[in-house]
Design a protein around this nucleic acid. Structure first.
Lengths: 186, 186
DNA sequence: ACCTGAACACCGTTCAAGT
DNA sequence: ACCTGAACACCGTTCAAGT
């Protein structure tokens, strides 16, 4: 006899993302997600293929949010200003959602990976802005340099890898300044 | 009645690191490490406090190897050349030991973290080289900028995050060039 | 002194049975 | 049509018992 669903994919993903952020990826168990949405673990398999699939959907959710935040940052008429704003937004996203951020740049099994089309769309504001600032055949290299720095900085900050004292905000400002002047064509 | 140890900390750490690299951190279970050294899981607790402690010891082993590799790279008389060589060595280490590399920059519980003194020693060649290349009060910021870029590049490469085609080696060379000229005082 | 099996509290996942 | 308990094959960790 048909029964109405007692939960939904949306509720599962959103509970999963909340649990990820509060407890970390290791504690993101099917059982805990199930309890959070009011069912038992086996029921989740009606909505997601397995735990990796749920992780992929959580990543999709997060990367879209990061993309929206980068897009909003790149909305002035000044591409240099936009690039700075995107770097700040990138770091802010990592600070606000450290676990989700970590997930996006983690090495995961193929089937857990965020959808390629969503990843590409999230990076579009960066490419778009650097097209205005660099000679065409260097846009991709310039984007990779900037994103590598921004990601590395955020990842090290989250990992607590800046252990030698000093002012981390100052290092961020220094790096951003130098990077922009180095990467951008005159 | 006393019995001689049937394994050793050294054997455990080295089997653990091998298992980490071949199967990943998730598969680094006490049971599998125990089998690899010829005992049962409970016996490992005579040598390490818990799984996190074993992970810390594996990280210590890896960071010392990375440090030796950076140190060997920074052995010419030309600090610019040394900096390039260290960036190449850093990337090579990540490529050779992706799982151990990932571990070193992962966000881990405090007690799993590599010893601070070993982390500091591993970064010493970078600081030493940048001291020769920058005004004193900018050395730390310059080092953080270079390391953030090198780490971000390696991490993205390992994560398969360079998805827009193009030549990744070329992006590495481009980034390194631009970064050096931007970070180094004239 | 060291190693072990058994036990405990967890996992992810499958599946027959319940409604 | 959806949810469930039971089951299976795993975890990490503790501990009394074996040698």
């Amino acid at each position: 006899m048909p029964t109405p669903p007692r939960t939904s994919l949306e509720a599962i993903v959103s509970a999963g993302r909340r649990l990820l952020e509060s407890e970390g990826l290791e504690s993101l168990s099917m059982q805990r997600v199930a309890v959070a949405v009011g069912v038992r673990a086996p029921s989740l398999y009606k909505h997601v293929r397995d735990r990796g699939d749920l992780i992929r959907l959580i990543g999709n959710d997060a990367i879209q949010e990061l993309g929206r935040s980068l897009d909003a940052a790149a909305s002035s008429r000044d591409p240099r200003r936009d690039l700075r704003a995107m770097a700040v937004a990138h770091r802010a996203f990592a600070g606000a959602y450290p676990q989700a951020y970590r997930l996006l740049f983690a090495r995961l099994p193929e089937s857990w990976q965020v959808d390629a089309s969503l990843a590409e769309r999230a990076s579009e504001p960066i490419i778009r802005t650097l097209e205005k600032l660099t000679a065409g055949e260097q846009t991709l290299e310039a984007a990779r340099t900037v994103v590598a720095w921004a990601h590395g900085f955020a990842a090290m900050e989250l990992a607590g890898a800046f252990r030698l004292g000093g002012d981390v905000d100052r290092a961020f400002a220094f790096g951003l300044d130098r990077l922009l002047s180095a990467v951008v064509s005159d």
